[in-house]
């Protein structure tokens, strides 16, 4: 079992865990933006509580903890790969295109994680009733959370580009 002690084994293992957690996160993000939000106005008013009280809290649980796990596993992966600090500096000075690319992907992912935990979740807590709020405050919270969620949907496209491009850019190290 010597191979289990080698970074060579753990690097792809943590990459796989990071991607699985990322699917949990971005899968729910896209569910909210592609399915739930556009469908809500079409649902009869008396049926909407089924979504808000039952589906939404469950989806938000997997969504926010998927985001947390993706970030933590991503930082571990970057550390195992030996480029954590260089990537956080956007690869400046490394002359390594892969580190430039993963650095941009990491920062976009960090911004998205911040949006989840510090904008979307505090506002959604008002929507699902975990935080007490007046009906006006609930409407404002729903709008703010929705806009931050849309920003994350927009950022998920360049984020995934940079993340996937980095380890597959074979010419990047000599670019």
């Amino acid at each position: 079992m010597d191979f289990l002690a080698q970074a060579d084994f753990w690097r792809p293992f943590f990459r796989w865990l990071h991607v699985v957690a990322g699917i949990m996160w971005i899968g729910h993000l896209w569910y909210f933006n592609f399915t739930q939000t556009p469908t809500m106005p079409k649902i009869p008013t008396e049926l909407r509580p089924a979504v808000v009280r039952y589906i939404l809290p469950e989806a938000l649980f997997w969504f926010r903890w998927g985001a947390m796990l993706t970030l933590i596993l991503g930082l571990i992966l970057a550390w195992l790969n030996g480029y954590l600090l260089d990537a956080l500096k956007l690869g400046i000075g490394t002359h390594n295109g892969r580190i430039v690319a993963i650095g941009w992907g990491m920062w976009l992912g960090i911004i998205m994680w911040f949006n989840v935990w510090f904008i979307i979740w505090p506002n959604q807590k008002k929507v699902i009733g975990l935080t007490s709020a007046t009906p006006d405050e609930v409407n404002a919270a729903r709008r703010t959370a929705g806009l931050a969620s849309r920003v994350n949907t927009m950022l998920s496209i360049p984020m995934s580009y940079a993340m996937i491009f980095a380890p597959h850019w074979y010419g990047g190290m000599t670019a």
């Binding site: 806009l147 927009m154 496209i157």
Partner: peptide
């Protein structure tokens, strides 16, 4: 900005436009 974000498809197109810009920036910085 808010009207763009209220439209799902405009948001997605904006994401792809940002991706093209990012690809150029990454290539230039590499």
């Amino acid at each position: 900005m808010e009207s763009l974000l209220n439209n799902l498809w405009a948001t997605i197109i904006a994401g792809f436009v940002l991706t093209v810009i990012l690809a150029i920036v990454i290539r230039a910085m590499a």
